[in-house]
Amino acid sequence: MDFRDDVDLDASQVEDRGGGGLSGGGIAVGGGLIGIIALAAAVFFGVNPAELLNGGGSRPADPSPASNLGAQCKKGSDADQSDKCRVVGVVNSVQRYWQDAFTERGKEPYRTARTILFSGAVTTGCGRAGSAVGPFYCPADRRIYIDLGFFEELQSRFGAKGGPFAQAYVIAHEYGHHVQNLIGTTRRVGNDRKGADSASVRLELQADCYAGVWAKNAIDTGFYERPFTDADIQEALDAAAAVGDDRIQERAQGRVDPEGWTHGSSRQRVKWFTTGYRTGAPARCDTFSGSL
């Protein structure tokens, strides 16, 4: 996963807030890994998931100050050397793809969404959140929120192998939720939020598929030196499997309960990312029709 050394990065699409305090009401986030991470964190850290969604139970905010990404992340060569600049590069590529895709299909113009990097806790348009909830998309302010410490947790707590493309998969998944919000798909969930055949699971699997679609077309965005390798894609598949509802439940409670699923099984997550990657076509990501 090598960026073109001379490609210009647009750091304005990513904001680094550093450490932050908590304020405001409870979080109400649509989509993302938030539900599954909250469940796992409750078991691993011994806290109430409801507290996580209201900012409680998170580690203290990191006192590190926010950084000026515009000064640090100027070229693709910077993205190959820095985690934060890599996020900028991935975000730029993902949004370039969706801008082009919306234009080609005659849809209303794609509206960019900023990614917010934080440490410890953050206040969002959806309320307050601690780092334990993992990466998430807030429809209210159309922003993606990521504590970079999550990527370490993905390996240490969830058993994923990790790697740069595992990180890219997570980011692309969250931008999939932004696309769903823009075109109105998110509204289809309503109160159907749990169960193996629920609208929530279908929404999450579609975001996985959209992540695969971006991966297939990423070389055309101009940010990468070459198409992704099989090893890159394997990192994404491994990460997708690691956060499947069934694997999380098995690790957390020793049994699998499909009635409690919100994101889909490991097999389903791998299947739909693969569908997106093989076809490269958003239209093939219709998880709301037929079986999963």
Rank of each mutant, 00 (worst) to 15 (best):
G35M: 04
V29Y: 08
A42F: 02
N68V: 00
D10C: 03
G25P: 05
I27A: 14
G24R: 14
G21V: 02
N48F: 03
L33H: 07
K84F: 03
D10V: 13
N68W: 05
G32W: 00
Q81W: 02
G46D: 10
K75G: 00
N48R: 11
A11G: 02
D62F: 11
K84C: 01
I36Y: 09
G56F: 13
V43L: 04
G19I: 06
G21Q: 13
S58M: 03
K75N: 01
I36Q: 15
G56P: 11
G32D: 07
G32E: 06
L52F: 12
C85Q: 11
C73S: 05
S58H: 06
G31M: 11
G46T: 14
G32L: 01
K84L: 13
K75H: 01
R59C: 03
A42D: 08
A79M: 03
G57T: 06
D78R: 01
G18T: 03
D80V: 05
V14Q: 06
Q13F: 15
E51W: 15
V29S: 15
N48V: 10
E51G: 15
F45K: 12
C73P: 02
N54I: 08
N54T: 14
A50G: 07
R17G: 06
G30M: 08
V14Y: 14
I37E: 08
A79V: 11
A66Q: 07
D83C: 06
A38E: 13
L33K: 12
L33I: 12
N54R: 11
